[in-house]
């Protein structure tokens, strides 16, 4: 069968995404090698990344705290097939429970041996301790934390 007739359509969109005060403060914290979180005054849940408001209590959050840069890896996946413009596979992405947080922080996880896909899950069992590794050049973005690595 001959190739179907198509027309190439390309979107070339560049954005300046507004951070607002809450995420702005979080990003400044990353530059200073601090992981900041905030808390809902009504239900006391602690959010990292911080939230401007609690979606359940529907009130503005208030109190800010600094969390330790270490926590438990609750879940992760290894990407074997990626996407155009994304990181080069294989790479691992995980959900990390920092001590004191009620949310998971999603981030890149290193320290895995990728040679055999069937072994990856056992290498970092649920709850494995992981710690943040800071990037040398920090500019106020989530990858100022370069990745989380197993903390022995």
């Amino acid at each position: 069968m001959t190739s179907p007739l198509t027309q190439t359509v390309h979107w070339d969109l560049t954005y300046d995404v507004h951070l607002g005060n809450t995420w702005g403060r979080f990003m400044q914290g990353l530059r200073e090698q601090k992981i900041l979180a905030n808390t809902c005054p009504d239900c006391s849940r602690t959010f990292v990344p911080p939230q401007a408001y609690c979606e359940a209590c529907f009130v503005r959050t208030e109190q800010w705290t600094e969390l330790p840069a270490e926590g438990d890896l609750e879940v992760f996946t290894v990407v074997w097939q990626g996407f155009t413009g994304g990181p080069t596979p294989p790479y691992a992405v995980g959900g990390i429970r920092l001590a004191g947080a009620d949310t998971l922080l999603m981030h890149v996880v290193t320290g895995l041996d990728f040679s055999d896909p069937s072994t990856v899950r056992d290498q970092l069992p649920h709850g494995s301790r992981v710690r943040a590794v800071w990037a040398e050049d920090r500019t106020g973005q989530i990858l100022d934390i370069s990745h989380f690595e197993p903390a022995g």
Binding site: H18, T22, R60
Partner: peptide, 10 residues
């Protein structure tokens, strides 16, 4: 606005 969209909505 110097704000994230959801803050304006909130």
């Amino acid at each position: 606005q110097d704000a994230v969209l959801d803050e304006l909505v909130f």
